[in-house]
Design a protein around this nucleic acid. Structure first.
Length: 109
DNA sequence: CTCTTGACTGAGG
DNA sequence: GCCTCAGCCAAGA
C-alpha cells in the first residue's frame, strides 16, 4: 500500500510516462487512476514541472480532446505538432478521432 | 490557519 | 451541441 505521503505529482508523472506512442489521455483519467477522480485539476497543475520530469505532457489533454495546455508549451503550436508527429491528427487544438487515440490507464493498466 | 489559483469535470439551460 | 455555474482538491503566499 502506498502511503498517502507519496507526492501526488509524482504519481501523475509516472502515469504520464506510461502513455504509449500515438496515444493520448485525459486529466480526469489519470486522476481517477490515482484514486483522485475529483483532482483532475491537480493533474494539470502537476504538469507544470513535467518539463523537468521527462513527461510527455503533450499527450495529456482535457476530456474533450482539446489542447487546453498548449499555452504552457514554448510555442503556440508545439504541442499540436508533437502529437501530429506521433500520428495523432490535431486540428485547431482539437484532437481528431479522440476516442480512437484515447488511452485509458484504468483499462490498459 | 485562511485565501487564491488552476493544463478539469459534470450538470443545467 | 455550446455556454455558464458550481464543486472538487492540492499547493503556494
Amino acid at each position: 500500500m502506498q502511503p498517502k505521503t507519496l507526492n501526488f505529482f509524482d504519481k501523475v508523472y509516472e502515469v504520464a510516462k506510461l502513455i504509449p506512442y500515438g496515444r493520448v489521455t485525459s486529466y480526469g483519467a489519470i486522476a481517477t487512476y490515482l484514486g483522485a477522480a475529483r483532482s483532475a485539476r491537480m493533474v494539470g497543475y502537476a504538469m507544470n514541472g513535467s518539463v523537468s520530469k521527462d513527461v510527455p505532457a503533450h499527450r495529456v489533454v482535457n476530456r474533450k480532446g482539446l489542447l487546453t495546455g498548449k499555452q504552457h508549451f514554448e510555442g503556440t503550436n508545439l504541442m499540436q505538432q508533437l502529437l501530429e508527429s506521433e500520428g495523432v491528427t490535431v486540428i485547431d487544438n482539437q484532437i481528431q478521432d479522440f476516442k480512437k487515440v484515447f488511452w485509458n490507464p484504468l483499462k490498459e493498466l
